[in-house]
Every structure is written in structure tokens, then in C-alpha cells.
């Protein structure tokens, strides 16, 4: 029995500096895992190692039981390992509809066609409309992305990811930079993710983590220092120390 997604002993060194140390974790189908950790813990490096943007110094990445460590980022996406970005990476001149259409055409291997109409296929059009509706983006579907709210851009990041029909989804701080009034929309979007999808979310907003995650992994100084249930994480001594440093043991001043 193999997990849908698994990393074993993943390490990365930049020169003499170890940014990721022997990270191992696995995600079964339908998992909702949150990866948290203080700034500089190596979360982004971890995402880049997993998605193939960086080559690990040691360790392996498995997708669907297959070793994908040697594959590039694009190949991993094509096998169902999809990510969103911490800072939105969108095409400001294009509309949400065009983003999702292009993504679906790409998924179907039709995005490279020169003599084809971009908007010609009604099946694609229907799917685009469905995805945008799920994320509540229909009303801005034909506005330039540069003109829509940041919260909507974050939702579009998720829409693009979903249009790829991923098996494993990495959400890199999906609520980062979103005004608190829009956070509920992101939360709703996360709740509506396909149940079978394995999701690994990196997030600072602990409210969101506790609501979303069934399991939490804490990273500090490039190492996994905690794996367990959300309810246990706050009580863990090492986690408290990682977040609070020596203050974790400070006594209250009378």
C-alpha cells in the first residue's frame, strides 16, 4: 500500500547551510495536511523541492508510488502534483476566464495549437464556467486580472490549480495578503475542494489551519519537529520553543 504522495529523507543544502534536513512525510488520498513553522523554517524551500523547482541534495519524492525525484517541475504537474503560489503569479492582461481556459486546453494537450480557436470548444467553456462558479468568480470572469480584487486573484490561483485536475495540491499560503473580510471566501473555497484530493497547505493563519487541517506538521530550522493532530500542536514543548524561543520557558513576572 503506497500513499498518494510521499517524501523520504528530503534534504537541501545551499553551500554549507542545510535549509531542509531529512524531511519525511506522506499524504494519503483525501488528506488535509497543514505545514506550519516560523519564518525561515524552510517551508518555501520544501515546496520548491517537492514541486521540482529545486533539486534536493538527498531524498526522494514519490507520487502515486512512482519516484518523481528526477523529473522536472512541468512533468510533475502533468502527473498531478500541482501548486499555487504564495505571491499570486497571474497574467495581469488576461481575464480569469482566459486563465482557466488556457489551463484546461493545456491539460488536454491542445494549448500548443496554432490553427484552432481559443474559445471555440463549448465543452471547455462549460468546464471553465463550472470552475469559476465554484470559486465565485463568474461575475469577474471577463475582467482583466489586474483589475480584480486581490482576494479574487487568490481564488483564481486555486481555480487554475483545480482546472489541472490534480491528485496532490500544494497550497502555498492561500490566504496570504488577503484582507480579513475576504478570508471566509478562501475558507469556503478550501472546504469545497474535491474530497479525494490530497492537500498540503502552508499557512500562517492559525485559525485557518485549525479549521482546515486534519493533521499538522511543524517545520523549524529545516526539520520536522512535530507531526500530529491540530489539537496537540499548541501543547507541544518543541513547537512552543520553535515559535517563542526562550520565552517559551520564561516565568511570568509577578
Amino acid at each position: 500500500m503506497s500513499d498518494l504522495f510521499r517524501v523520504e529523507g528530503l534534504s537541501k543544502q545551499f553551500g554549507g547551510l542545510a535549509v531542509s534536513r531529512d524531511i519525511s512525510l506522506s499524504l494519503p488520498e483525501g488528506e488535509r495536511l497543514a505545514l506550519i513553522g516560523p519564518n525561515g523554517a524552510g517551508k518555501t524551500t520544501f515546496v520548491n523541492l517537492v514541486t521540482g523547482q529545486l533539486k534536493p541534495s538527498a531524498g526522494r519524492v514519490f507520487l502515486n508510488g512512482q519516484d518523481v525525484t528526477g523529473l522536472g517541475a512541468v512533468q510533475r504537474v502533468r502527473r498531478g502534483l500541482v501548486r499555487t503560489f504564495q505571491v499570486t503569479r497571474l497574467f495581469s492582461e488576461m481575464t480569469p476566464e482566459e486563465h482557466v481556459t488556457l489551463t484546461i486546453l493545456q491539460r488536454e494537450g491542445r494549448a500548443n495549437r496554432v490553427f484552432a480557436r481559443f474559445r471555440g470548444d463549448s465543452a471547455v467553456g462549460g468546464e471553465v464556467e463550472g470552475i469559476l462558479a465554484t470559486l465565485g468568480l463568474l461575475d469577474v470572469a471577463r475582467r482583466r486580472v489586474g483589475e480584480i480584487a486581490y482576494g479574487q486573484q487568490r481564488l483564481l490561483e486555486i481555480a487554475i490549480a483545480l482546472a489541472l485536475k490534480p491528485k496532490v495540491l500544494l497550497l502555498d499560503e492561500p490566504a496570504a495578503g488577503v484582507p480579513s473580510t475576504d478570508t471566509p471566501r478562501i475558507e469556503r473555497a478550501l472546504e469545497q475542494l474535491p474530497p479525494s484530493l490530497a492537500v498540503l497547505m502552508i499557512e500562517h493563519d492559525m485559525d485557518l489551519v485549525f479549521r482546515f487541517a486534519r493533521r499538522v506538521v511543524v517545520l523549524a530550522a529545516g526539520e520536522v519537529i512535530f507531526q500530529g493532530l491540530p489539537a496537540e500542536v499548541a501543547a507541544d514543548d518543541r513547537v512552543r520553543e520553535a515559535y517563542l524561543g526562550s520565552y517559551a520557558h520564561a516565568r511570568r513576572v509577578a
Partner: peptide, 21 residues
């Protein structure tokens, strides 16, 4: 065409295009 749109995407952000597979 889809190809033309993909090119515009690459112009703006090749990393995003890569993340689209």
C-alpha cells in the same frame, strides 16, 4: 489561437506557465 495565448502567458510569467504544466 491557444498557442498565441500561451505565448502571451509566457511573456508575462513563464514560471506560471510551467506550473500550468
Amino acid at each position: 489561437s491557444p498557442f498565441g495565448m500561451l505565448c502571451r502567458g509566457i511573456k508575462e510569467d513563464p514560471v506560471r506557465v510551467g506550473a500550468m504544466g
